[in-house]
């Protein structure tokens, strides 16, 4: 479903070229739950960003279904992120001035055309699914960290994404809340969602069907 071949990514730091990914190849099947593990600075987040199209690789090929994403113009990549791909981050990243419902509907608010009633219903259903139906009108600042992460997951649910990329989704949560979020991700995976998760928690990584370990920009197993 999603394949990366010989991906290379370098960053410039103080005029010095730092290789972050060195000819990395990954293959993710439809409906699979894959975790990416590694130490800080190993390149796991960069790999997730490349796979989710947030960052373009310097070289290599990234294929989604039959399309070579490396050849996609910016606009097509944006459309892909609006439809098939969803990303959740360690710090939840909701817009603080939008309500929970509006944050959930954010992917559909990108034009001046009003969001349809059907989408609003879907968003409410998504919030119900993650247990936040009664907090739809609240601002994210009034929610706990776990609740905010659930809003981010509801956002991914509403747009019927095929692949969910999660960058340390439990990183900023306490153990109990982290477990709840992982339970939710497992549930979604069991319903057919492809999940690619970066984590440095061995316990959570072991819940995935497959673990990719990365070290100094190279996959070690």
């Amino acid at each position: 479903m999603l394949s990366a071949y010989n991906i290379t990514k370098n960053y410039q730091t103080n005029g010095r070229v730092v290789p972050v990914l060195k000819e990395v190849s990954v293959n993710i099947s439809e409906g699979e739950f894959v975790s990416i593990v590694g130490r800080s600075g190993s390149g796991k987040t960069t790999l997730l960003n490349v796979l989710s199209t947030l960052v373009r690789p310097d070289s290599g090929e990234l294929k989604y279904r039959d399309d070579n994403l490396a050849l996609f113009p910016e606009k097509r990549l944006n459309r892909l992120r609006q439809s098939d791909f969803a990303v959740i981050f360690q710090f939840h990243h909701l817009l603080p001035y939008l309500s929970v419902l509006e944050n959930t509907l954010l992917p559909f608010m990108s034009s001046l055309r009003p969001v349809s009633k059907q989408r609003v219903q879907q968003a409410r259903a998504g919030l119900e699914r993650v247990g936040l139906a009664d907090k739809a009108d609240r601002l994210p600042g009034n929610l706990s960290g776990g609740e905010q992460q659930r809003v981010a997951i509801a956002r991914a649910l509403v747009k019927s994404s095929r692949v969910l990329f999660a960058d340390e989704p439990t990183g900023s949560l306490d153990k109990e809340t982290g477990k709840q979020i992982m339970g939710l991700l497992m549930e979604l995976h069991q319903e057919g969602l492809t999940v690619v998760m970066v984590t440095h928690e061995p316990g959570y990584a072991s819940l995935a069907e497959r673990t990719i370990a990365i070290e100094d920009g190279t996959i070690v197993h």
Partner: peptide, 16 residues
């Protein structure tokens, strides 16, 4: 910049 990052991750283009 954080807001811009969130929006871009959700597929918002430069024009939006």
């Amino acid at each position: 910049k954080k807001d811009i990052g969130i929006l871009r991750s959700l597929g918002y283009g430069k024009s939006q």
